Computed example of a mutant assay.
Amino acid sequence: MRKHVLVLLADKASDDGTGIWASKPRLAAELEVSKPTVINTIKSLIDDGLLVEKGLRQNSNGFTKDYAINLDAIRRLPLANQSCHQSRCLTGQNDRPVKPDNLSSQAGAPHQSNSLTQTPLNQPEPPLGVAPARHKPAASSKQVRVNVPVVGCHLPKDWQPPAVNELSAAVTRMVAQWPAGAFEASCKSFYFHWQSASGPNAIKRDWTSALELWLVQDNLRMMQALAAGTSFEWAAPTHAAKHSVSKRVIARSDEDLRSRAIRAELVKQLGKHAVDHWFSAVALLCDGTNLRVICPSNWAEDYLRRTFHAEMSLAVKRAVADGGAVSVTFEVGAVSDNAARPEDETDAR
């Protein structure tokens, strides 16, 4: 199992062994083992010095650990003698020199060579002064790396989540325990995440299977929200038309040019559609290098803080702080009676 886990981590790592931040449930699903097995195996690799924990990296579900493979430790593993051992196993011969034949006791008998190449009989002798011709060894074939095309596609812009009863039986039973609207909210997060993703990992063969894995990883958060009494009614199908756009906070009218610059940076990172959806009702007030994010509800404050904190910090650095240190704080403010419309964002910009 250690070898399987290490090979999978190496497949996800960069050329220098760094940049491994796959979640434990995803690794367990790809290896078809349990999550505790993956955790214990990674712990043993860290204890042996083959894997190094670099820190934490933010993702859509909070944070995940960032690992790196210790290439120096891998090179020091006792693997050099395997080739010799395998050669002896394949040929059945030991490393001792071959005993020479007693030519005197076998006079007149044809010579039997122990080598794999035999000299053909009746070969004409070369003329005097001319060296015998030697056969050139066949050129060794070099391994050619073939770029296998990635089969699949990006998540379509008009993608719609399947009905709950169209998912696998286990996922259907799991989602049935969630509060009303939680499934639709998780599907929205899934959509915005993969719409803004890029690279080979953003190409999937089966987006329904990818959604099921996303829901399984989101189950803990949804059950915690259920225990805390968090409401997802705004995303429920029966309330979608009424709550499709949250009411705007009153402090939205206090935004200035710095706020517009921060919103423009967010559009570069997340895309206009995601910014219009999640930030049209939110006020972004900049005080020096501190950004106050005033949200219309407790749920919006919690979600934006966990999902977009890193993106907002980077937007403040680029827009107003010139790359210096910044801080981002979240709070809930009073809302107005008028609903925020995405087109208002376009007019403001």
Rank of each mutant, 00 (worst) to 15 (best):
L285C: 03
E331D: 06
H154W: 07
F330V: 02
D101M: 12
S246R: 11
E53W: 01
C153W: 05
P127N: 04
L167T: 00
N165F: 06
N201M: 11
T238R: 15
D254F: 05
G49V: 00
I42H: 00
N122K: 10
G152V: 02
V320F: 01
P161M: 00
L8E: 15
R306M: 06
S113R: 13
S168M: 07
D11W: 08
D347N: 07
I46N: 12
S83K: 12
K54F: 04
S259D: 05
V328P: 02
R292K: 14
H239N: 14
K317I: 03
V7E: 13
N102H: 12
S280T: 14
R2K: 13
C84L: 14
V148H: 09
A22H: 07
W299S: 06
S168Y: 03
A321K: 06
S34Y: 02
M174C: 01
T230F: 06
H193T: 14
S253Q: 15
L116T: 15
S327Q: 03
D101A: 13
N147D: 10
F308G: 00
V146M: 09
P110C: 11
P162S: 06
A109Q: 15
E343L: 13
S246P: 01
A185W: 11
A236S: 15
V326R: 02
S297A: 07
A334I: 09
K157E: 10
L8P: 09
N290Y: 08
E166I: 03
G17Y: 05
L304V: 00
D47Y: 09
K136L: 06
I250D: 14
L56H: 09
L284E: 04
N70G: 02
D254G: 02
R260G: 06
Q123Y: 11
F192A: 02
M1F: 08
S246N: 10
S141L: 09
A22W: 08
I69T: 00
L71E: 12
G324P: 10
E255K: 02
H135I: 13
L9D: 03
N40M: 04
D11G: 10
A310I: 07
S87W: 12
T208R: 15
W278Q: 04
A22I: 06
L226S: 12
N338D: 15
L56E: 13
P97A: 09
L304I: 13
L56I: 02
K272W: 12
E265Y: 10
K3F: 10
W21Y: 13
L155T: 02
I39K: 04
P124R: 01
G108D: 07
S259K: 01
D287H: 13
R258W: 10
T64K: 03
R75P: 03
D347V: 06
Q106V: 08
T329W: 00
V326D: 00
R96I: 04
G288S: 01
N122V: 11
L51C: 07
L266F: 09
K142D: 12
D254R: 15
W159M: 05
S231D: 15
W234D: 13
D15I: 09
L71R: 12
C187K: 01
W194C: 01
P156C: 04
G333N: 03
A264R: 15
A348S: 11
R145E: 08
R258E: 15
G333P: 03
P179K: 03
V328T: 02
V33P: 07
K24E: 09
N165P: 06
L284D: 03
P36E: 00
